[in-house]
Amino acid sequence: MAIFNTRDRTIECRIVYYGPGRGGKTTNLEYIHRAFRKQTIGEMVSINTTGDRTLFFDFLPMGLGKIRGCEVKVQLYTVPGQIRYGSTRKLVLKGVDGVVFVADSLEVRRKENMLSLKDLQQNLAEQNKNIFKIPLVYQYNKRDLAEEGVPIMPVEVMERDLNSKLKIPSLPASAVNGKGVGATLKECLKLTLHHLQEELKWAVQDGL
């Protein structure tokens, strides 16, 4: 739930990286933390467990500076992808303004992508939010693994699996080397700020 302070003209929104376990959500945030130093306004907080899996969430606060006369702050979160951490995912998703769904391009993770998307839809519905209406972007991660000779899904297959109904922007990426990470975040921010403009009319001038 974005907070718009009319007096200070600041807006703060929440973007959550969602997706199956080991899909690269934390890697996305780690890259953003390294590559966008100027925009990060605090340390990245990660709470991991055995095997370097996210236990609770990762958190990275960012300040985008003034956009359309308003100071824009963004909180980036990841959820734990493992199925057993369902209640934590719900809590982190509370008040979300935009979602980046990090799908794993590995063929062996096809089913997990679809299960995680269904989980997202259900958790949003519990918050009275519609997956068709919330700002949502797909990132098809781990495209680099094709070079290793491991079977990965063609983008067309992923589009058919995940995007035939939603028809949302999707971007190929390789979070481990930063490819597509910035573009994904930018796309999600664009959608989120547009959506919030309709709701809160935060921007001085229109035409974001």
Partner: peptide
């Protein structure tokens, strides 16, 4: 075996 190793490095232990 190569595939199995890669999944291991990705912590995809079941796969």
């Amino acid at each position: 075996v190569k595939e199995a190793e890669l999944y291991r490095t990705q912590s995809l232990l079941t796969e």
